[in-house]
Amino acid sequence: MFYPNSPQTSPQLTQIPYGQQYAMMQRQIQQPYHPFATTEPQARLYPYHYQGPIQQEQGGFITQQSTAASPQYVQMRVTPVDQSIMSGYPNQTANGSSSSSFNYNIHPQQQQQQQQQQQQLRHHAMPVGSVPLQDDRYRKQLIVNYLAPDVTSTDLHELFSRFGELDGARIIYDKQTNMSKGYGFVYFCHAEDAKEAVERMSGYEFHGKWLKVGYSTNPLNIVPSNSSPYVHAGSRGAAG
């Protein structure tokens, strides 16, 4: 039997160049792979992502010199942007860049009308829970959420009447099932009393439920100042 490094198959040491006398086997001759043993700084910083320098080929596509990437890492192929796409944008300079302001050559009167329309939209648009300043009635009506099913309009009136005089209180019921929808409205005579009720009743436990109280901004629920107070009856038909 002959071994790869046996004296019968191995040459004389004098015939082997210096430095390879003890590297006779194939696994010894093959050098191990060192990912950080390279002179390129990109490979030292990113050993798993770097795959060699990027070269520009004919046709405008950018390719990489090395083989496919590892399945664990996804390499994105980048193509140059066609400058003709950006030619339609206004205020574009000769080098292809555009300024931040756009001039669509709008007539001054049209621009003024658009600004007025935007101001009107901001004036009428009102986020949930906010209180408008032009109508004091919005500051007097509250919406009470997360009410228990057994709470009546009379219970709601008695709960909030300790903060001040009320114009009314009612629970909203479903017309088909005649069941409470879980929320109601309270109408105060003074805005200061309503503000105190919002601050003190939010998070209050009532009939096993934690109440959420806020201003009601729905104009359909506003009680006119010259109208008669609501009837605080315990029956659902009268309260709904």
Rank of each mutant, 00 (worst) to 15 (best):
P4C: 12
P4Q: 03
P4T: 09
N5E: 13
N5S: 12
N5F: 06
P7M: 00
Q8M: 09
Q8D: 14
T9C: 11
T9V: 02
S10L: 08
P11S: 04
P11H: 14
Q12E: 11
T14A: 07
Q15E: 12
I16A: 02
I16S: 08
Y18E: 10
G19I: 15
Q20K: 06
Q20D: 00
Q21N: 03
Q21T: 08
Q21G: 13
Q21V: 11
Y22E: 09
A23T: 09
A23K: 03
A23S: 12
M24D: 14
M24L: 07
M24H: 06
M25K: 05
Q26T: 15
I29V: 05
I29M: 15
Q30Y: 12
Q31P: 14
H34M: 15
P35F: 10
A37F: 07
T39L: 11
E40K: 01
E40G: 12
E40Q: 07
P41G: 10
P41R: 03
Q42E: 08
A43F: 08
A43N: 12
L45C: 04
Y46H: 01
Y46C: 09
Y48F: 08
Y48W: 13
Y48P: 04
Y48L: 06
H49F: 15
H49N: 14
H49M: 14
Y50D: 06
Y50E: 12
Q51H: 11
Q51E: 11
G52L: 14
G52V: 11
P53E: 06
P53C: 08
P53Q: 09
I54E: 07
I54H: 03
Q56V: 14
Q56M: 15
E57G: 07
E57S: 05
E57P: 04
F61E: 04
I62F: 15
T63W: 12
T63L: 14
Q64P: 11
Q64L: 13
Q64F: 14
Q65L: 12
S66C: 06
S66L: 12
S66V: 11
A69P: 05
A69C: 00
S70I: 02
S70F: 14
P71R: 00
P71T: 10
P71L: 11
Q72M: 15
Q72A: 04
Q72R: 05
Y73F: 00
Y73K: 11
V74A: 00
V74H: 07
Q75R: 03
Q75T: 08
M76V: 07
R77P: 05
R77H: 00
R77T: 05
R77Y: 12
V78E: 09
V78K: 13
T79L: 11
T79K: 05
T79C: 13
P80C: 06
V81W: 10
D82P: 02
Q83W: 12
S84A: 01
S84K: 09
M86A: 13
M86H: 04
S87C: 04
G88I: 09
P90Q: 03
N91R: 11
Q92K: 11
A94D: 11
G96Y: 15
S97M: 00
S98I: 09
S98T: 13
S99G: 02
S100H: 13
S100W: 13
S100N: 13
S101M: 00
S101I: 12
S101T: 06
N103Y: 14
N103S: 10
Y104N: 06
Y104W: 14
I106C: 09
P108L: 09
P108C: 14
P108I: 06
Q109D: 15
Q110P: 09
Q111G: 02
Q112K: 11
Q112P: 08
Q112Y: 12
Q112L: 06
Q113Y: 11
Q114P: 09
Q114G: 04
Q114D: 03
Q114L: 07
Q115K: 06
Q116N: 00
Q116L: 03
Q117H: 08
Q117M: 15
Q119W: 12
L121Q: 12
L121M: 11
L121S: 08
L121G: 05
L121P: 00
R122Q: 09
H123Q: 01
H124M: 10
H124R: 00
H124W: 15
A125M: 15
A125P: 10
M126G: 06
P127R: 11
P127W: 15
G129C: 12
G129M: 00
S130Y: 09
S130K: 08
P132V: 07
P132C: 09
L133Q: 13
L133I: 10
L133C: 15
Q134L: 06
D135I: 07
D135M: 01
D136G: 05
D136P: 01
D136I: 00
D136F: 00
R137T: 02
Y138R: 03
Y138E: 15
Y138P: 10
R139I: 01
K140H: 00
Q141N: 03
Q141P: 06
L142N: 00
I143V: 00
V144D: 12
V144E: 13
Y146N: 05
L147I: 10
L147G: 05
A148Q: 03
A148S: 11
A148W: 00
A148V: 07
P149M: 13
P149L: 05
D150E: 02
D150V: 10
V151Y: 10
V151L: 04
T152W: 04
T152C: 04
T154L: 05
D155H: 02
D155V: 11
D155L: 02
D155P: 03
L156K: 04
E158W: 14
E158T: 05
E158D: 04
L159C: 04
F160I: 04
F160Y: 03
F160K: 02
S161T: 13
F163E: 01
F163G: 11
L166F: 10
L166I: 11
D167K: 02
D167W: 00
G168H: 04
I171T: 06
I171E: 08
I171C: 13
I171Y: 13
Y173D: 05
K175M: 06
K175C: 03
K175T: 09
K175H: 04
Q176K: 09
T177D: 01
T177Q: 04
T177G: 03
M179V: 05
S180A: 10
K181N: 08
K181D: 01
G182W: 10
Y183K: 02
G184A: 02
Y187M: 05
Y187G: 09
F188W: 15
F188R: 07
F188S: 07
F188Q: 01
C189E: 11
H190I: 15
H190G: 06
H190P: 11
D193E: 02
A194R: 05
A194W: 08
K195R: 08
K195F: 09
K195I: 11
K195P: 09
E196K: 14
A197V: 08
E199S: 04
M201F: 02
M201I: 07
M201L: 02
M201H: 14
S202H: 04
G203N: 15
G203L: 05
G203Q: 08
F206H: 01
H207L: 03
H207G: 04
G208P: 12
K209R: 06
K209G: 05
K209H: 07
W210L: 03
W210S: 06
L211K: 10
K212R: 08
V213I: 06
V213H: 11
T217N: 10
N218S: 05
P219I: 01
P219R: 01
P219N: 07
P219W: 02
L220F: 04
L220N: 15
V223N: 14
P224C: 12
P224D: 03
P224Y: 05
N226E: 08
N226V: 04
N226C: 02
S227V: 07
S227D: 13
S227E: 03
S227F: 04
S227L: 08
S228N: 05
P229T: 02
Y230I: 01
Y230S: 09
Y230W: 11
Y230E: 13
Y230V: 06
V231S: 13
V231W: 15
V231R: 11
V231G: 10
H232V: 06
H232A: 09
H232K: 03
H232N: 12
S235K: 13
S235C: 02
G237H: 07
G237E: 13
G237K: 09
A238I: 02
A238P: 05
G240R: 12
